[in-house]
Design a protein around this nucleic acid. Structure first.
Length: 241
DNA sequence: AACCAGGACGTGA
DNA sequence: TCACGTCATGGT
């Protein structure tokens, strides 16, 4: 029996409302369809062929480390700094002076920790030799937690695995599909059980969640204005999607 | 001018 | 396991 669950209905609604998001952004990308506007550039809506090169994969991994607990505009500054140094490639990062690296990524804050994270991840990345890592391998790296590992897999390595972030928690606990303190892997499973693995869908869903949350789920926003809340939260808490 | 941002880790109960 | 504290800059 084919059943359309709320997890799927919500994806369809977000997709219709906001359109394709074009994640993961690449700072230098100037494609034929850069429809995102504003200061934050680099998105490529409708183009799922990226990343095309090893250095683009690496840039996405760097971005997922640098964006931890920080807004994307700050990450873009850091990546732009690195770009000017011709440093968005593993060899340059590994040979680069620590203080130069710290200075370049300063806009994202936590630069002592993040410098270490970048260095340690980069050693691992080189050791891959083009191979796709497992989730457990990524999680064994200092500074790579579940969200970061899943982001790297989904957007850099093109593995259809679902990414859960703070916004996912906020939206779906508000609606009542999950509990706010459910474990990361439990929430991830809810999405993966309701949507058969598909790279483009998983990439878009996470990106759409972020887009939607920025509008209705920032800390001071009124969540009751969220149209999803009106539509899906009426019956109280429902499980299984 | 506080407050928060697309987390992860270390610590003590 | 759980609940905090820490890390640090920059944008509303």
């Amino acid at each position: 029996m084919l059943q359309i669950t709320n997890v799927i209905r919500i994806f369809n609604l977000l997709e219709t409302t906001y359109g394709p998001q074009g994640w993961w952004p690449l700072v230098d990308y100037r494609g034929s369809n850069p429809t995102k506007t504003g200061s934050v550039q680099g998105y490529h809506p409708g183009d799922y062929s990226l990343p095309k090169t090893t250095n683009q994969m690496y840039e996405i991994c760097l971005g997922s480390l640098l964006t931890q607990s920080v807004g994307w505009p700050s990450v873009e500054k850091a990546l732009t700094n690195l770009k000017k140094l011709n440093a968005i490639n593993p060899r340059t990062i590994l040979s680069m002076d620590e203080n130069v690296l710290k200075e370049a990524i300063k806009p994202v804050g936590y630069f002592n920790q993040k410098t270490r994270k970048v260095k340690e991840f980069t050693k691992f990345f080189v050791g891959l030799n083009g191979r796709t890592p497992t989730r457990d391998e990524l999680l064994s790296i200092w500074g790579v937690g579940k969200e970061t590992a899943d982001s790297m897999l989904l957007y850099a390595f093109k593995v259809p695995t679902f990414v859960v972030d703070a916004y996912t928690r906020r939206i779906f606990s508000h609606i009542g599909l999950i509990d706010e303190k459910d474990e990361y892997d439990e929430i991830k499973a809810l999405f993966e059980e309701n949507i058969t693995p598909d790279l483009e869908t998983y990439q878009e869903y996470h990106a759409l969640i972020v887009e939607h949350a920025k509008r209705f789920y920032s800390k001071q926003a009124d969540r009751k204005l969220c149209p999803l809340y009106k539509k899906f939260a009426k019956g109280g808490r429902k499980r299984k999607g």
